[in-house]
Design a protein around this nucleic acid. Structure first.
Length: 493
RNA sequence: GGCGGCAUACCCAAGUGGUAAGGGAGCGGUCUGCAAAACCGUUAUUCACCGGUUCGAAUCCGGUUGCCGCCUCCA
């Protein structure tokens, strides 16, 4: 079994062979820090977080680099609007980005370099390109001459002629070819500037990834990722710069995630149809957003809506509920693990599904990170486990039965963790989700407890009319009751 | 205009030529004072449409229709 990965460069699924066996060098384009992140950014971060986790689970030693673009026109514009400097804006949104990612359980990459900490490397690459006659200075700017790189267009699958025909390119009198792109931008007075052989200026957008990739991962590295919208021109230009400068292949596998859509349209700043991560997390548990995003293959579009999120949350609640049930009813009482035969005798279906999960999970994920299929396998075990628990009525499980249930719960949890799911205890999850809902609905916990206590009294007195009246009242508030032998439980929905 | 992607049940969704995973919702039942939750049963002879290749196609090839994306900042 080998891991296969869809490579945008070849438009095929290929078996994954890193440059150096056992090690993976992974670079993902981060965000431009001029505003809060939206759900589209979350998808990219979550997708590559899962890839990062899975590669590690698969035994690779991974070096994961994700940059911050901390200097660009939008940041400068924002700084001007607020009467502050670019650094203040960049630092503020880097902090906000980290808060959002931490909330989503997105692991920190091994390195998170800033563009502005790598200006020397960028200048170095631009000089090499200049020496080779591939870059040229025009006024205070430096451009990359696309005609000097014969393979230009190989990633996005278009030729220079195709692109010329598009003719949507702005005509810039400085450019020899309208498709040439800027490597270095001379600064106007008052703009942030760095010294360079071409005078004070700042880097073009594309050069930073070439510089940081080269510096931290070497001239050729294994995986470069980002959203599909970066294929052209960003990644195309990165290839051109890097390969022209260093004469070796830049990246072995290009991996691009699909968009988050709203009403079948791409979520984006310019369309204005976006939700920020923190906005969504006001009404939805972070794990719900994670599960939602990875319920679909990473290259397909995913349509975002309240209803879709609510569906996902119901599924997640159920998964946690089964694990909680197993925890409570199949406690670890010590002793030697029973023989396989004894376990199989308890429930062949659960035993087999649970035993096969590692292989099934791995097969799914090896198939170009098919998280949707992997999640399907997780739910198969969950269902079998819940059925097994239910077959005992309300009794606690003992001996081999308890062991089997615990084992199934553990294997679910272990594999969910590779997806960054089920990372908390069921109790913590219930508490968090309840808090989110209570806050959202503006309810008071004390008030709910009070009403439940009154209803319990009425029930004890067999005054079911009164008990039902109170329950209806709670239902109207969005509180759902569940009477169990251990008392009444409640959820907000 | 150029390039690319997608179309699977009521909804979301996996499906890597060998006979349609999984989730949500609905309906019937079990449980319950009644509910809720959970469980059991049930919901695609069929994968947008038309041809073709093959013993065999949701999967491969050609065409048609519809939707989307990139070609400008964009995850």
């Amino acid at each position: 079994m080998t891991l296969t990965v869809y490579n945008t460069l070849t438009k095929k699924r290929e078996s994954f062979q890193p440059l150096e066996p056992g090690k993976v060098r992974l670079y993902v384009c981060g965000v431009t820090v001029y505003d809060l992140c939206h759900v589209g950014h979350a998808r990219s971060a979550i997708v590559f977080d899962v890839i990062y986790r899975y590669l590690k689970y698969r035994g690779y030693q991974v070096t994961y680099v994700r940059n911050f673009t901390d200097i660009d026109d939008k940041i400068i514009k924002r700084a001007n609007e607020e009467g502050t400097d670019y650094r203040t804006i960049a630092d503020r949104y880097i902090a906000a980005f980290h808060e959002d990612m931490d909330a989503l359980d997105v692991l920190r990459p091994d390195l998170e370099p800033l563009a502005t900490d790598n200006i020397d490397q960028m200048i170095h690459i631009i000089r090499r390109l200049e020496e080779k006659g591939i870059a040229y200075q025009a006024g205070s700017d430096v451009y990359f001459s696309v005609e000097k790189f014969p393979e230009y267009g190989k990633l996005s699958g278009r030729s220079l002629e195709d692109m010329m025909a598009g003719a949507r390119v702005e005509v810039d009198p400085n450019k020899k070819n309208p498709l040439d792109f800027v490597l270095w931008k001379g600064s106007k007075p008052g703009e942030p500037a760095w010294d360079s052989p071409w005078g004070p200026g700042r880097p073009g957008w594309h050069i930073e990834c070439s510089a940081m990739g080269n510096r931290f991962l070497g001239p050729t590295f294994d995986v470069h990722g980002g959203g599909k919208d970066l294929i052209f021109p960003h990644h195309e230009n990165e290839i051109a710069q890097s390969e022209a400068a260093f004469g070796v292949p830049f990246v072995r596998y290009w991996v691009h995630n699909g968009f988050v859509n709203i009403n079948n349209e791409k979520m984006s700043k310019s369309l204005g149809n976006f939700f920020t991560i923190r906005d969504i997390l006001k009404s939805v548990h972070p794990e719900t957003l994670r599960l939602f995003v990875i319920s679909k293959h990473y290259r397909s579009p995913v349509d975002f809506s309240d209803e879709a999120l609510a569906e996902t949350e119901r599924a997640l609640v159920r998964l946690y509920a089964t694990l909680e049930d197993a925890d409570r009813r199949a406690p670890d009482t010590g002793g030697d693990p029973p023989h396989e035969k004894a376990l199989m005798a308890q429930d062949k279906d659960l035993f087999e599904k649970s035993r096969n999960l590692p292989d099934h999970f791995r097969d799914a994920m090896d198939n170009d990170f098919n998280t949707a299929q992997a999640i399907g396998h997780l739910f198969e075990v969950q269902r079998a486990l819940q059925r097994f628990l239910d077959s005992f009525g309300r009794k606690k499980l003992k001996g081999p039965a308890a062991f089997l249930a615990r084992q199934a719960a553990e294997t679910i949890q272990e594999h969910a963790k590779v997806l960054g799911l089920i990372t908390r205890t069921p109790e913590a999850f219930s508490r968090q989700i309840r808090q989110i809902k209570i806050r959202e609905k503006g309810l008071s916990e004390a008030q709910v407890h009070d009403l439940i206590a009154k209803r319990d009294q009425a029930r004890k007195a067999k005054d079911f009319a009164e008990a039902d009246r109170i329950r209806d009242q709670l239902t109207a508030m969005g509180v759902q009751l569940e009477d169990t032998p251990e008392g009444t439980r409640w959820r907000v929905h």
